[in-house]
Amino acid sequence: MTATETATAPDAAGGAAGYRPRATLSIGAEWRRQASRRRTQFALGFMVLLPLIILIAFQFESSGDDDNGGGEFGSLIELATTGGLNFTLFALLVSSSFLLVVVVALFCGDTVASEASWGSLRYLLAVPVPRARLLAVKLAVALGYSLLALLLLAGTALLAGTLRYGWSPLSSTVAAQIPAGEGLLRLLGILGYLAVVLLVVAGLAFLLSVSTDAALGAVGGAVLLWILSSILDQITALGVLRDFLPTHYSSAWLGLLSTPVQTDDIVKGAISAICYATVFWSLAFWRFTRKDVVS
């Protein structure tokens, strides 16, 4: 540091030279911040690994005639080895109820809370990254990683399943075989719906994330509430109240397997998920842009 160096020249708004609020914490910067973390790498890696593990598990053919339950849709398990599309469907079926929930909760619940627990959040705010921008970028990147995880899971399953079991029509016992081309579209539809339903988890985890500086609390809290909602949904005595549970329509994507597709529940599920996510995110922004950061 020498005396010849001059202080940075201020701009009209009072910022340092080169400082623009909209250039702070770019999506790329946040993406790299998250990409460098072990938990991101492990979570994404597992998404690739899971279909391969399932594939290997299927090689241990057993004569045991296990009833996997689930009625007509339970037979998706038996059909898993009929082709790449069915294998992908199976991989989604087994991971949609819990694994994907955890992964999405991890990406969305950890993002702000972990910065708070490291103490780096206050330095980002002192840059200053505008709070709304900080949240928006963090949310966009968390959702991006969640989507990437979903696509990696489906993509790997489709690739591995097709290489192992071939490219054949999507079959289920609820309806006639669906030609492979249309089956792929249905699969994309299922992925899309899963992504929408998981927005509830994303919203809840994100809200918890800005409310606490314990990352585990945010992730675990979101998963716990999701499980609670699933349990309540099993209690038919709740009647019409069940329709308002965020998990009530979580398996409506199965309707995409029948012909013609049953979209009514999917539409309702999408409405429910979008409403919840919007409320949670609105609360998160409202809270974070006003709160005193004390971490």
Binding site: T8, P10, D11, A13, G14, G15, A16, Y19, P21, G119, R122, Y123, L125, A126, V127, P128, P130, R131
Partner: peptide
């Protein structure tokens, strides 16, 4: 909070 002029301040607060 969030004023651009914060960019002219370097800080070490609370560790």
């Amino acid at each position: 909070p969030g004023s651009p002029v914060l960019s002219r301040i370097g800080a070490l607060v609370e560790g």
